[in-house]
Amino acid sequence: MTAPTTAQAAESFVHPAVFYRTDEEYLAALVPFVTDGLEAGQPVAVSVPGRQLALLRGALGDAANDITMMDMTVAGRNPGRIIAGVLRRFADAHPDVHVRIIGEPIWAGRTEVEYPACVVHEALINLAFTGRDVTIACPYDTAALPDEVIADARATHPLLWEPDRRRSSAEYALDAVLARYNLPFNGQESAGEFVATTLDDVSPARRHAAEFAQSQGLDADRVADVELIVTELVTNALMHGGGSCSSRLWRESGHLVCEVRDSGRFEDALAGRRPAEPRQVGGRGLLVVNELADLVRVHTGAQGTTLRAMLRL
C-alpha cells in the first residue's frame, strides 16, 4: 500500500479508515504514510494505542524523532477531547502546510459504554475538518474488532484503505450515524436530584456534587474536577437549555457519573470540541468538561438534552 501523492493530499481534507489484520499490514499502510509526508516536508503526528505506538516507533527508526507521537489511550481516553486536544491542536500549529495525522480512537479494549462516543467522534471529524488541508488516517484492526465496528467505520469514513486497494466508501452516511448513536440513557438510581432554575443555584449544585464526590472517597483534586464539571454543565444548561435543569450523581461500573438534564435541544454537534480562540470570552464550559472527564455522552431530542460526564474511580 502506498501513501497518496503530495498533490492528491493537498486537494482537500482526506479521512480514510485504514483496515488491517496483522502487524505487517499495519506497518505496510502507515510507515509509507509517515515517511512520504516527512519527505514532502509535511508535519506528521501519530496518536494510537501504546502497543501500536511502539510498533510504529520501532519500524520508523530515526524518523520517529521527527514526528509527534501520543498514546491514544491517554490523550483520547475521552473521545470528546480528541478533536480539540489532539487533532486540531496539531493541525492548527501548522496552518500553512498539509498535515498528516494517524489517529486510532477505537481499539479492542474500548467498552460498550465508550463505543458510541467513539463512533460519534469519528463522524464529527468530517464536520470539524471540512475544507482543511489535512489527512487523518484512522486504523481499524479487522481481526480484533467486531463486524459492526468495521461497518460503522465504513459509514464514518469517506475513504477506505484496505491492504490490496483503496476506494470510496459506498456506505458513508454521516447523518445516519449521528442519528443512530444519539442514544437515550437508561434510568439510574442517584444520590438525589438537584433542580436549578437560575444562575444563583449553580453554587448549591456545586456543593451538592462535592459532598457526593467526597462520600465516594475521591481525593481533593478529583473532587475539584467534579465540582467544576457540574458547575459548567449546570451553567451551560441554564444559559442554553430552556431555563431550568436537574443534576444527579451516582456511582456505576467503576465510574462516578455526573448527569445534567434540560429541556433544550443540543443543536451544535461540535460544541465542546473546538479549541477556544485566544481572545474568546466564554464558550469554554463543555470544552472544560471534555478535558476533565474520562467519558462524555450526549443524548438530545424533542424532550430535551442529557449530558453525562463520567470519571474513573
Rank of each mutant, 00 (worst) to 15 (best):
A155Y: 04
G264Q: 10
E39D: 15
F212C: 12
A173S: 15
I67E: 01
Y26I: 00
R81T: 13
T306P: 07
A153N: 11
E193T: 11
Q42D: 14
H299A: 07
L87D: 01
D219C: 05
D66S: 08
D23A: 10
H299L: 01
D225C: 05
L124C: 07
A170G: 11
T111R: 06
L183K: 14
V34G: 03
N182Y: 05
R154G: 04
P32Q: 07
L30W: 02
T2Y: 09
V97C: 09
A75T: 02
E227K: 06
A123H: 09
V298C: 13
R154E: 14
A170M: 12
E189K: 06
S246I: 03
A9E: 00
L286I: 08
C118H: 02
G50Y: 02
I125H: 04
E193Y: 04
M239C: 11
P79A: 06
R100S: 13
T5N: 10
L307Y: 03
I102N: 02
R165Q: 15
A155S: 15
P4K: 04
V113N: 01
V223P: 08
A176C: 07
V281E: 12
N186E: 15
H240P: 07
R274H: 15
D294S: 04
P79I: 01
P163H: 03
V119L: 11
L174V: 05
S253Q: 15
P204C: 13
G242D: 07
V234G: 05
D175A: 14
I229V: 11
L307S: 01
I101W: 00
D36N: 12
R110F: 00
V44P: 11
Y20C: 09
I136W: 07
L199M: 11
I83Y: 01
R248Q: 15
R222Y: 06
M239A: 11
R110Q: 12
D141F: 00
L228D: 03
Q8T: 13
A108F: 13
R206A: 08
R248I: 09
A173K: 01
A276Q: 15
F90M: 00
Y181W: 13
V99H: 04
A209W: 02
V289Q: 00
D147V: 09
A123T: 14
E11F: 12
E104H: 02
R180Q: 07
A17K: 03
L218E: 01
T235R: 10
A64Y: 06
I82T: 00
D164Q: 09
V48G: 03
D96T: 06
G243T: 08
V134C: 01
G41L: 06
N65K: 08
S244T: 08
W107G: 00
T235I: 03
D96F: 07
L160C: 14
A64G: 08
V119H: 01
V202L: 14
A269Q: 08
A191R: 10
A213W: 04
T231A: 12
H299F: 10
L233I: 09
F185R: 03
